[in-house]
Amino acid sequence: MTHSLFRQKRAEPAPMAPAPGCDANATHPRAMAEIARGRERVARRVEELESLAEEEILACGKVLAGIVENVRDLITETERTVAESVAQSEAVTSRFIGEMQQDIGAQESAVQHVLALADGIQDAIEAINGLSHYSNVLSINARIEAARIGERGAGFAVIADHTRQLSKTISEAAGRVSASIAAVRQGLPPVGERAAAMQARTRSFIDVVGEQMKSASLQAAMGSAGNRKLDAVISLSNEALSHLQFHDPLAQALTGINRDLGVVESRVGRVLGGETALEAIAEEPGRGSDQPEPGKITLF
């Protein structure tokens, strides 16, 4: 990268002395004064231009620095926000999983409790059936005994009939309760299966969430992408900085204009003073072939 304006800093050439006997200030004082004033005006303009260029370049540098700083802040802020979101979702998910597991556990406990109650009722029914059987036997024996004692046992026979009837009623009621318990038992296993399925789904969910919780790698990937972008922005900023390095060459070019004006002033004075044989204006020496190229870094 080179600037066409770029020149090496070099010393100002000595102003050209007027030829002996050719004092233009004496012969053309107004013209020479006008030229001197013009040169001063140009010098002021040159100074203003150089100052303006310096201000603008410094301002551009500040803008570049601001852009890079803002990009850096944006990336940092994005990474922080993502990290916070991930942490928040981890907390919410953990709480949800915990509550779900508690619900499933409570449901299982309730089923076990109902099954235990059903077992207890079944035991009670069996005891009731035993009593029913016993009262039935009792009624049969009472009828036999009533028949054996004849007419005096007619009252016992009536009691025996009622006892048998009671036994039958009890037995039928116990049968209905038993059937209901059986129905409850039949209905309960699907509840357990659903709970098991729910638990399986929860575990699957936990696995999925676990994968998401490996967000360290996600964050690292995001951080890596962010850093790559930041590097690219810095590289572009450096490129812009390279393009902004025109202040030195500009200042040197403006100095050259000043110098050339001095030469012109001197030569006009000499012409007005009557000198006719002027030497050619010397060209500034260019960069020698043995000098390093601009931008090239030479490490010793």
Partner: peptide
């Protein structure tokens, strides 16, 4: 240790 002729390449 080294010499760079302006304008320099920032990178």
């Amino acid at each position: 240790v080294g010499w760079i002729v302006k304008p320099f390449d920032a990178n």
